[in-house]
Amino acid sequence: MDKTKDLSSKSAVQRLIDRYNFKPNKAMGQNFLINKEALNAIVNGADISAEDEVLEIGPGLGTLTLKLSERAAHVTAVEVDKRIIPLLKQTLQDVGNVSIIEGDFLNPMVAEEIKECLAGKSAIVVANLPYYITTPVLMDIIENYIMIKRAVLMMQKEVAYRVVAQPGSRLSGSVKDYGVLSISVQYYMDPQILLEVPRSDFLPSPDVDSAVVRLDRRDKPAVDVQDERMFFSLVKAAFGQRRKTLFNALAGGLGYPLGKDGLKRVLERAHIDGNRRAETLSLQEFADIANELFYTINS
């Protein structure tokens, strides 16, 4: 890499934003990574080959984009902030295998542009996600998981641990991190935390620490269910009132015309104690309940 293009230091980033009189927007989560080891860990963790298509969400100044372009066949970079596009183009002016899409990744019209750039190929997603859109982007990736080989995502540390959480786990103290997000991601993806990144490794520094999560697409969902919509409705109802027992949470929020006696029979057939709390159930146990619910309603 041309050393004049290396933006993995505080001084280099500061010079670039000063040259363009650019003011990072805190509300948009514009915190630029300035740790070379962390940048390399993200790229290495993505396992990019010379044949791979990479989709980068929020390239910012292009620091990570440069490193991705050295490994991939092509990088599609989606940037929502029009103000930063001139800086991004300056960084990438000598790079021939990067396409920049201006717009919101979550906008359906932008999604069509991305599909055109990928030309039917599966992509590796890499992103330093602004904290305010982490969950919507994660859910979009999950819903379109067929198009994605894997994803390597920087996100708020607390959210990262929710993504990989197992039944009964806690991030700290009374904060319960296993929930709807954990199950939604793990149903389609196999997640692991690659590294933690302190707030001091960003310019400007955010208010929280971060972590990098790798998500590998499963060949098939983690558990077999008869009706995915019913499965996720069940999960959301179970976690909708965490302080209640599983039976009471489902009785009040499931929305299916079972009645308490019917719900009791469903749980008995699934061999689940209704006095348990939702955060103690595994994906398989939720699947067992969902399947018994499906059979009961459709019998």
Rank of each mutant, 00 (worst) to 15 (best):
L194K: 07
L215R: 10
S299R: 12
P108C: 02
L194T: 13
D2E: 15
N44W: 08
K260R: 15
F239M: 07
R15M: 13
D6Q: 04
E112P: 01
D219R: 13
P24H: 06
K23R: 14
P221D: 06
P130E: 12
N35I: 04
D224L: 09
V152F: 03
P59M: 00
K115E: 14
E116M: 11
M155Q: 12
P136K: 00
E56R: 04
G58V: 00
F294I: 04
S182P: 12
K176Y: 08
T65F: 12
G45T: 09
P136C: 02
V75D: 12
M154I: 02
E196Q: 15
D18C: 02
A27Y: 10
R218N: 05
D104P: 06
P198H: 05
K121I: 00
K121E: 14
L250Q: 11
I85C: 06
Q93H: 11
L246E: 06
T135Y: 03
S9D: 09
I141S: 04
T135V: 09
E143P: 02
V110E: 03
L64G: 09
T280Y: 03
S172C: 01
L181S: 02
Y295P: 00
G103K: 02
G255R: 05
V208R: 07
P136H: 02
L16V: 12
L258R: 07
I42H: 02
A251D: 11
R150H: 05
T4F: 13
P24D: 05
L246R: 03
F32A: 09
K10R: 15
M139K: 14
P206I: 12
G96T: 06
A278K: 03
S174L: 08
L61R: 07
S282T: 15
E228A: 13
K82Q: 14
A251H: 12
F294T: 01
R214C: 10
E113P: 00
A165L: 03
I146S: 14
A249F: 00
N248I: 00
L138D: 08
G259H: 05
D227E: 02
D81M: 01
A238Y: 10
V13G: 01
N291Q: 04
G173E: 10
